[in-house]
């Protein structure tokens, strides 16, 4: 409830933050719908937003979270790691597999913010149970989740999981892309974040655009995602950092109109594979290089089969995709809009 109240109270533009009902002009996207209610419904266990720390926002506006703490031991203070991970059919049956869950938890703990695809369950407690496992060691991960999406009755949800010691969510800037022409099987789930720093006004802020295309409609969908990307670039005048990440079912040669976006850069290419069978490069992290100079140049595919010394079958029981990650500076690059 706290998050819902914060989103409603701050949506009017405190510190220039985003109103969830703002109009976006563009050929595809007309609006972003707030997910605050969906988020609340996904939290039946009260595991997220229930601790006092969430009400101790360290800055004005819709950014909210626990007080600034020293950075976690996972990365340097001046860098953040963001990732995308398609956790194939992430639902009840996977939660019941302790070996697979142990790997998923250890994988997520390596990152500061991670975009998850393929939450597939009718139950609303999948992410809360994941967060409970993540935080069992004292970590302070949190999540937001989108609505169930998909044209058939088999739906999926996107989620963002983030370490609240390291990352702040702009809770008024969470939503699902409006897709009135119905070009996308699962319209992207978007949210705006920034690293938790001692000087929030200088922190790197960015949109994450979480996506999973329909494998039967890839050329059309990647072209629609190019529109999404460009609309997000102009969604607000004080934000030029748009990071599209997810399972595109397309390698870098198959990105269609995304390749035509001026200055566009993708991290995965050159024959690096991102699936567990190591024969597809479908997952990627895409941004505009001139705008997002905070990218340090470091990225990789986390091969958890090797990392955790798993057999191929054991690795496939975790997911048929490996996470892809990239590193960014916590400070906004000089001269950038924000």
């Amino acid at each position: 409830m706290f998050w819902l109240i914060v989103a409603l109270l701050t949506g009017g533009g405190v510190s220039g933050l985003l109103n969830p009902d703002w109009p976006i002009v563009g050929p595809l996207v007309t609006s972003v719908k707030t997910q605050a209610i969906e988020y609340k419904n996904q939290n039946p266990l009260g595991l997220v937003g229930g601790d006092a720390g969430h009400e101790s926002a360290n800055t004005a506006g819709a950014y909210a979270g626990p007080p600034v703490q020293s950075a976690s031991a996972l990365g340097p203070n001046d860098k953040i790691l963001m990732a995308t991970f398609n956790i194939q059919v992430f639902g009840e049956s996977k939660l019941r597999k302790p070996e697979a869950m142990a790997v998923i938890v250890e994988v997520i703990r390596k990152f500061d913010v991670i975009a998850i695809q393929e939450v597939r369950a009718k139950a609303d407690d999948i992410l809360p149970r994941l967060i409970a496992e993540l935080n069992a060691d004292g970590s302070r991960y949190d999540f937001i989740i989108g609505p169930r999406l998909g044209r058939s009755v088999s739906k999926e949800q996107y989620a963002f999981v983030y370490d609240t010691n390291r990352i702040e969510l702009d809770s008024a800037s969470v939503g699902t892309i409006g897709d009135p022409a119905d070009l996308l099987h699962r319209a992207p789930f978007i949210a705006r974040f920034r690293p938790r720093t001692t000087d929030p006004d200088r922190a790197f802020t960015f949109w994450l655009v979480n996506t999973h295309t329909d494998p039967d409609d890839v050329p059309e969908e990647v072209n629609a995602l190019a529109q999404v990307f460009q609309v997000m670039q102009t969604a607000r005048p004080d934000e030029d950092d748009v990071i599209l990440l997810g399972d595109l079912n397309a390698n870098e040669q198959q990105l269609g109109d995304i390749r035509k976006i001026p200055g566009v850069q993708w991290v995965v290419g050159g024959g690096v594979m991102t699936n567990t069978r190591q024969n597809k490069a479908y997952d990627n992290i895409i941004f505009c290089a001139p705008a997002t100079q905070e990218f340090t140049g470091k990225w990789n595919v986390l091969n958890f089969e090797q990392e955790f010394n798993l057999s191929r079958e054991e690795a496939l029981r975790v997911s048929d995709h490996f996470p892809v990650w990239a590193e960014f500076d916590v400070w906004e690059s000089s001269g950038a809009v924000h």
Partner: peptide, 10 residues
């Protein structure tokens, strides 16, 4: 049922 359906669709 859901558990079967989800894996079959995937």
């Amino acid at each position: 049922v859901e558990d079967v359906q989800n894996w079959a669709a995937a």
